[in-house]
């Protein structure tokens, strides 16, 4: 194997052929780490028909963009992606490979780490260079502690959460785009038999400036309709802790927390949820946190900026009406 060199970001693109916001954050983060460590920043992008996407990634502060553009990479098959990417990275061994802690990142990087005999740190909430090494911070014990870890291998990979890095400023010069021919792959042992996806009209949770979340104490679907009304008024989205999702009062896509989405809106309104560490892990970085809970000792009050102790069924309608009046003024 070659001497490891450079920091690479595994870029993911959205439907409009642009890098996802998390990819941009990783490129910003990678740029900073690369300059701290005196090395280069590259990106790797896999897919089918991705010329435009590769161009836009090249304008995000990268020195080089490696493009694997092949019809077999049109949809994600972990065995194919691992083999193709593993093949490429063996010849261009990075010091660090960063991926988003996304559906693909979580599924692909452990496989790739085995392929390259690299260390892997998942779900990072902080990365910094210190004394020529990279230190990774991540929550453990459901967010009750934060561990700082470092690799014992030369190459290290990480999946990074949303909002850890900042998107880079537009670069003056674009990086070099290198198209790499994907080596022919062995047949995947996996067979994909179709998918069922839901289409959401609401504002995506991760991008909403206001999130109104309900917990177990909401008690049912009707309650969530009330929260939706409040969120709509504030131009925000509805979130939930896990119990409402498990009970089917709110869709799975609403779950905030360590096994749900990570959000950091300007305002997070937590209604009838207790503030478990698993939930806080997904919203603790919000600008202002507002809690409504009938239990004065609920932990959520310890981590909130504003609160009302009481039954949400009485507090929230009055709060919503007053807000509507304020907004109309």
């Amino acid at each position: 194997m070659t001497q490891p060199k450079g920091i690479y970001v595994l870029a993911e693109i959205n439907d409009s052929q642009n890098p996802t916001s998390l990819t941009l954050e990783l490129l910003g983060l990678g740029k900073k780490l690369a300059s701290d460590m005196g090395t280069t920043l590259g990106a790797v992008i896999l897919g089918s028909d991705i010329t435009a996407a590769a161009q836009s990634v090249s304008r995000c502060g990268t020195d080089e963009v490696l493009v694997l553009d092949d019809p077999v990479l049109g949809t994600y098959d972990p065995e194919v992606f691992c083999e193709v990417l593993g093949g490429l990275l063996k010849s261009r061994l990075p010091l660090i490979l960063l991926s988003g802690h996304t559906s693909m990142g979580q599924d692909l990087l452990p496989r790739l780490a085995c392929e390259l005999e690299a260390a892997l740190v998942t779900d990072c909430v902080g990365l910094r260079a210190e004394g020529g090494e990279i230190l990774f911070t991540r929550p453990v014990y459901g967010g009750n502690a934060l561990a700082t870890q470092k690799a014992r291998t030369e190459t290290v990979m990480a999946t990074v959460r949303a909002r850890v890095g900042d998107a880079p400023a537009a670069a003056e010069t674009a990086g070099v785009v290198t198209r790499v021919q994907a080596a022919p792959v062995a047949a995947s042992r996996l067979e994909f038999k179709g998918r069922e996806v839901m289409v959401f009209k609401e504002c995506p949770l991760e991008e909403a400036p206001v999130v109104v979340s309900g917990g177990r104490g909401i008690g049912g679907e009707e309650g969530f309709a009330q929260l939706r009304e409040l969120a709509g008024l504030l131009g925000g989205a509805v979130g939930a802790s896990r119990p409402p999702v498990d009970s089917g009062w709110a869709p799975t896509t609403c779950q905030v927390g360590i096994t749900g989405k990570v959000v950091a809106p300007d305002i997070y309104v937590a209604v009838a949820l207790s503030g478990s560490t698993q939930h806080l892990s997904g919203m603790g970085e919000s600008g202002k946190i507002v809690a409504v809970n009938k239990d004065p000792d609920a932990y959520i009050f310890k981590v909130s900026d504003y609160g009302v102790v009481g039954d949400w069924k009485q507090v929230i309608p009055a709060f919503t009406t007053a807000l509507r009046e304020i907004i109309q003024e």
């Binding site: 780490a113 967010g143 009750n144 870890q149 806080l280 603790g284 609160g307 009302v308 009055a318 709060f319």
Partner: peptide, 30 residues
């Protein structure tokens, strides 16, 4: 082992909460 834990810390996330009170809960909401 490929990873080493070099530090463990308690996350700091406690905030000072301003509790809003009223004669009724409706008033508190307003």
């Amino acid at each position: 082992a490929r990873l080493e834990t070099v530090a463990l810390a308690i996350p700091s996330r406690e905030r000072r909460c301003a509790l809003v009170e009223g004669d009724t809960l409706q008033e508190a909401g307003r």
